[in-house]
Design a binder for these strands. Structure first.
Ligand code: AMP
Ligand code: AMP
Ligand code: ZN
Ligand code: ZN
Lengths: 307, 307
DNA sequence: TATTCCGATAGTGAC
DNA sequence: GTCACTATCGGAATGAG
């Protein structure tokens, strides 16, 4: 995983066409004369747009297909890795500090709705295994980005560097897991101890990572979101962005296979997206006021990265 | 009536206060924990705003009172004229090329709703007479501003200047009215004719002037709008501006006294304001799309002023 | 149906 | 619940030594 920051403003051109004839009367109550009296509108009712022939709609929704088809054609800042069954990319519009997408390449599953695709148990098994792999990777990337701010990591580093006693840093939990690929290659200070009965474990970065699918994806190809939970990113711009990752709209991969009666199957209708905005970290309720949530998340991020 | 263009951007300062506690939950469904878990919001619920003590609300609504009380303290660009019974001003936010307000000074009527105030027949008589006076003045001001573009006026001027035959210009209607205070002081060309059986009457500018009150005024002091009907002005900024002058929401002074059963008495509730936007000149319906109406009015104005 | 600022909401277009 | 753009809609403040 190399750098990221895939930031590029898409330039769009547009032509403003004035002069129309009859608007779709939202709450029509125009009298019949109006139409006859309207000489100004040069009357070019834009071809009644035959639904179905919208190339761009198809193209935009199918954008993830390009990564699946030609993963090797992208730089490391876009495609993180790929193998026979999966392509892993940085989300082009990350909604959190680290936001990746796991794209299964299986043509038999790629165009299915995630709920359906993940009913295939064998396939689900592969996906879950790859998700675990990716989760470790993402946790490592998060540590690479934010580790320098972490007090928990600092405690561990201090002990490893011999700058502090094991008793100075407050022990978070018992040391158990081992996702600490710190590259302390011999540059440890001189007075390192031999017996370290309570080396601080460092921050559990993996606990900050979420893995799931959207109940109603917009992009056509099957993809699993693997992202940090901070929701701190310039691309996180509106309520749906936030709620799509902080309500049951995001279905954890661990919850699959979904029971046929699962409530997330039926309630696809906007319900989750319309929920009040609630801070994932402290539970503060912001109603519909996205801007205030956004500002709040900025401050939460500053505290969170220092944990 | 001197110049106008009372254009001045009001400067406002504002202070953004972050950090709030509990939003008014639009569609509240936050659990009880949220409140307890919210340590971040520094909890300064802005003083629950005691309703009634809003000095600025009162002041803004009463702003027209200053003209009535001290008309002499304003320049001619603001107060057009004043006498014992009336003050006439340029609307500070004109919604058309020429937009004036007739302010009756009578304390017995000034704070009444216009429907009520104009039930006093003697008072109504004075108002109607003054409105007619003002209407002529406004028509003259409109001619001063736009006369140079008018083909109808040009026809008349051409004949008066001897530049054209009376038969060249197409006769609009029979010459009858006489609101033409053209200042053709002796600079007429040499070959002016004596007998002019069909001198073009010039444009009927008074026909472009509307005089009326709003069914539900916002400003507290009684005022009658006297304005050109073009709705072409930078201050004409949203739907309510337009519909307040182009629906029955504007009640013509000539319609007074209003019958007790008049439909405009009862339907004060937003009905008129919510109507589709319809061009006053050609009847084109723009639904809710104010911007398109605005652009359309720009083009209508170019044609209209050349009539 | 005062103005102004700001932000939430809604529709569109994307070759 | 693609993004990006525009515009509509909606509430809150408007004061001041
Ligand atoms: N061209 C693209 N390349 C990479 N990611 C994309 C692209 N377009 C959209 N996305 C992301 O794809 C995800 C689709 O979300 P969803 O379909 O709701 O699960 C969003 O997080 C987008 O930011
Ligand atoms: N301070 C002011 N001086 C002059 N006209 C004003 C002022 N404030 C508002 N107006 C105008 O007063 C009119 C009041 O409209 P209404 O109460 O709806 O009949 C509007 O046309 C405003 O533009
Ligand atoms: Zn919070
Ligand atoms: Zn028109």
């Amino acid at each position: 995983m190399a750098d990221s920051d895939s930031e590029e403003g898409l330039t769009r051109e547009e032509m403003q066409q004035q002069e129309e004839v009859e608007p779709p009367p939202k709450r029509a109550k125009q009298d019949a004369f109006a139409k006859l009296m309207a000489p100004k509108p040069k009357s070019i009712p834009p071809p009644p747009k035959p639904p179905g022939s919208r190339p761009h709609l198809f193209k935009n929704r199918m954008a993830l297909g390009a990564y699946i088809a030609n993963p090797e054609s992208y730089p490391a800042s876009v495609v993180i890795y790929h193998n026979a069954d999966f392509v892993v990319i940085h989300d082009k519009f990350p909604k959190a500090t680290v936001h990746t997408l796991l794209l299964p390449r299986s043509p038999r599953h790629s165009l299915l709705h995630p709920f359906e695709a993940l009913e295939d148990e064998q396939f689900l098994g592969k996906v879950k295994a790859e998700v675990e792999k990716l989760k470790v990777l993402v946790a490592g990337e998060l540590q690479r980005r934010l580790g320098a701010f972490s007090r928990a990591d600092a405690s561990r580093e201090a002990v490893l560097n011999g700058e502090a006693d094991v008793l100075e840093g407050k022990v978070d939990e018992a040391t158990e897991d081992g996702q600490d690929q710190d590259q302390d290659h011999g540059k440890g200070k001189s007075n390192r101890r031999n017996k370290e009965p309570a080396l601080p474990s460092g921050r559990d970065w993996a606990a900050e990572i979420k893995c799931g699918v959207h109940a109603v994806p917009s992009m056509g190809h099957l993809h699993i979101h693997v992202l940090s939970r901070d929701m701190h990113s310039p691309a996180m711009k509106h309520r749906k962005h936030y709620n799509s990752f902080n309500t049951p709209f995001l279905v954890d991969v661990a919850d699959f296979p979904l029971e046929s009666s699962d409530f997330r199957r039926s309630s696809k209708d906007e319900g989750f997206m319309r929920r009040d905005l609630v801070c994932w970290r402290c539970g503060a309720n912001f109603g519909n006021r996205f801007k205030e949530l956004k500002d709040h998340l900025e401050r939460e991020f500053e505290e969170w990265k220092r944990e």
